[in-house]
Amino acid sequence: VGDQVLEIVPSNEEQIKNLLQLEAQEHLQLDFWKSPTTPGETAHVRVPFVNVQAVKVFLESQGIAYSIMIED
Protein backbone atom coordinates (compact mmCIF):
# COMPACT_ATOMS: atom_id res chain seq x y z
CA VAL A 1 0.00 0.00 0.00
CA GLY A 2 1.36 3.42 -0.96
CA ASP A 3 0.22 6.95 -1.48
CA GLN A 4 -3.41 7.63 -2.38
CA VAL A 5 -5.11 10.31 -4.43
CA LEU A 6 -8.38 11.34 -2.84
CA GLU A 7 -11.28 12.99 -4.60
CA ILE A 8 -12.81 15.33 -2.05
CA VAL A 9 -16.17 17.08 -2.42
CA PRO A 10 -16.72 20.00 -0.03
CA SER A 11 -20.41 20.83 0.32
CA ASN A 12 -20.10 24.37 1.72
CA GLU A 13 -17.72 27.28 2.33
CA GLU A 14 -16.85 26.05 5.83
CA GLN A 15 -15.61 22.74 4.44
CA ILE A 16 -13.56 24.58 1.80
CA LYS A 17 -11.98 26.66 4.58
CA ASN A 18 -11.15 23.45 6.49
CA LEU A 19 -9.55 21.93 3.38
CA LEU A 20 -7.45 25.04 2.78
CA GLN A 21 -6.25 24.83 6.39
CA LEU A 22 -5.41 21.17 5.81
CA GLU A 23 -3.50 22.14 2.66
CA ALA A 24 -1.44 24.61 4.73
CA GLN A 25 -0.23 21.83 7.09
CA GLU A 26 3.20 21.32 5.52
CA HIS A 27 4.11 18.36 7.75
CA LEU A 28 1.34 16.32 6.06
CA GLN A 29 3.10 16.73 2.68
CA LEU A 30 -0.18 16.91 0.79
CA ASP A 31 -0.05 17.55 -2.93
CA PHE A 32 -3.23 19.30 -4.07
CA TRP A 33 -3.61 18.57 -7.78
CA LYS A 34 -6.83 20.55 -7.81
CA SER A 35 -7.58 22.88 -4.90
CA PRO A 36 -11.08 23.32 -3.46
CA THR A 37 -12.72 26.55 -4.65
CA THR A 38 -16.47 26.02 -4.97
CA PRO A 39 -18.92 23.93 -2.90
CA GLY A 40 -19.87 20.77 -4.78
CA GLU A 41 -16.77 20.93 -6.97
CA THR A 42 -14.20 18.18 -6.51
CA ALA A 43 -10.70 18.68 -5.19
CA HIS A 44 -7.94 16.14 -5.87
CA VAL A 45 -5.12 15.59 -3.40
CA ARG A 46 -2.25 13.12 -3.27
CA VAL A 47 -1.71 11.94 0.29
CA PRO A 48 1.55 10.23 1.33
CA PHE A 49 0.96 6.75 2.75
CA VAL A 50 2.09 7.74 6.26
CA ASN A 51 -0.62 10.44 6.44
CA VAL A 52 -3.54 8.69 4.72
CA GLN A 53 -5.28 7.66 7.96
CA ALA A 54 -4.88 11.08 9.61
CA VAL A 55 -6.31 12.86 6.57
CA LYS A 56 -9.27 10.46 6.29
CA VAL A 57 -10.03 10.86 10.01
CA PHE A 58 -9.95 14.65 9.60
CA LEU A 59 -12.27 14.57 6.57
CA GLU A 60 -14.72 12.25 8.34
CA SER A 61 -14.68 14.39 11.50
CA GLN A 62 -15.59 17.45 9.39
CA GLY A 63 -18.28 15.58 7.45
CA ILE A 64 -16.43 16.10 4.16
CA ALA A 65 -17.21 13.52 1.47
CA TYR A 66 -14.27 11.82 -0.23
CA SER A 67 -13.41 8.77 -2.28
CA ILE A 68 -10.17 7.10 -3.31
CA MET A 69 -9.40 8.15 -6.86
CA ILE A 70 -6.01 6.42 -7.23
CA GLU A 71 -4.60 3.78 -4.93
CA ASP A 72 -0.88 3.41 -5.41
Rank of each mutant, 00 (worst) to 15 (best):
S67V: 08
W33E: 08
M69Y: 11
N12L: 02
N51W: 14
S61H: 09
Q15N: 02
V5P: 01
D3R: 06
E7Q: 13
S35C: 14
K56G: 03
P48Y: 04
Q21T: 10
D3T: 12
E7I: 13
V45Q: 01
A65C: 08
A54T: 10
D3G: 14
Q25T: 10
V47D: 00
A24D: 07
F32K: 02
S61E: 12
F58I: 07
P36H: 02
V45Y: 02
Q25V: 09
V9W: 14
W33N: 05
H44S: 08
P10G: 03
M69V: 11
E71D: 12
L30K: 01
E14H: 08
V57L: 14
Q25F: 10
F49P: 03
V5T: 08
H27R: 06
S35K: 14
V47G: 01
E60P: 00
F58S: 02
E41L: 07
A54I: 12
D72L: 14
P36R: 01
Q25P: 02
Q15A: 05
E71T: 10
S35R: 15
V47P: 00
L22I: 05
Q21P: 01
E41N: 07
M69W: 08
I16P: 00
D31M: 14
E26P: 08
A43T: 13
V9F: 13
L19E: 01
S61M: 11
N18Q: 14
K17Y: 13
A65E: 09
L6W: 12
Q4P: 08
T37L: 10
L28R: 03
L22T: 02
L6C: 02
L6A: 01
F49E: 06
E71N: 11
T42W: 04
I64C: 01
D72A: 13
W33P: 04
E14Y: 09
L30V: 10
E7G: 04
A43H: 07
S61K: 12
L22A: 03
V1Y: 13
E23I: 14
D3F: 15
I68M: 06
H44I: 15
P36Y: 03
I68G: 03
I68V: 12
D31R: 15
H44Y: 15
L19G: 00
Y66S: 01
Q53Y: 10
V1E: 14
G63E: 05
E23M: 15
K56C: 09
E60T: 07
S35F: 14
M69E: 04
L6D: 00
P39V: 11
L59A: 00
V52I: 13
H27V: 08
G40Y: 08
I70P: 12
S61Y: 07
I8A: 02
I8S: 01
W33G: 05
Q53S: 10
T37A: 07
D72E: 14
E23T: 12
Q25C: 12
E26N: 12
N51T: 05
S61L: 11
I16V: 11
F32C: 03
D3Q: 08
V50W: 11
I64Y: 04
D31V: 15
G2M: 10
D72Q: 12
E71R: 05
A43F: 15
K56W: 03
R46V: 06
I70Y: 13
S11P: 01
K17L: 12
V57K: 11
L59I: 02
Q53W: 10
L30T: 03
S61R: 11
L28S: 03
F32A: 02
E23C: 12
I64H: 00
K17Q: 13
I70W: 13
I8R: 00
A43S: 10
V55F: 15
S35L: 15
D3Y: 15
V52D: 02
Q21Y: 14
K17T: 08
N12Y: 02
Q15R: 01
T38K: 11
V50N: 11
V45E: 00
G63R: 05
T37E: 05
E60R: 06
F58Q: 03
L59M: 03
F32N: 02
V1D: 11
T42I: 12
P48K: 06
H44V: 15
V52C: 05
P10A: 06
Q4N: 04
P39C: 04
L6R: 00
D72P: 10
E14L: 10
I68D: 03
A65K: 14
S67C: 09
T42R: 11
A24P: 02
I70K: 10
N12H: 03
S61C: 08
A24M: 10
S11F: 11
P10T: 04
P10F: 14
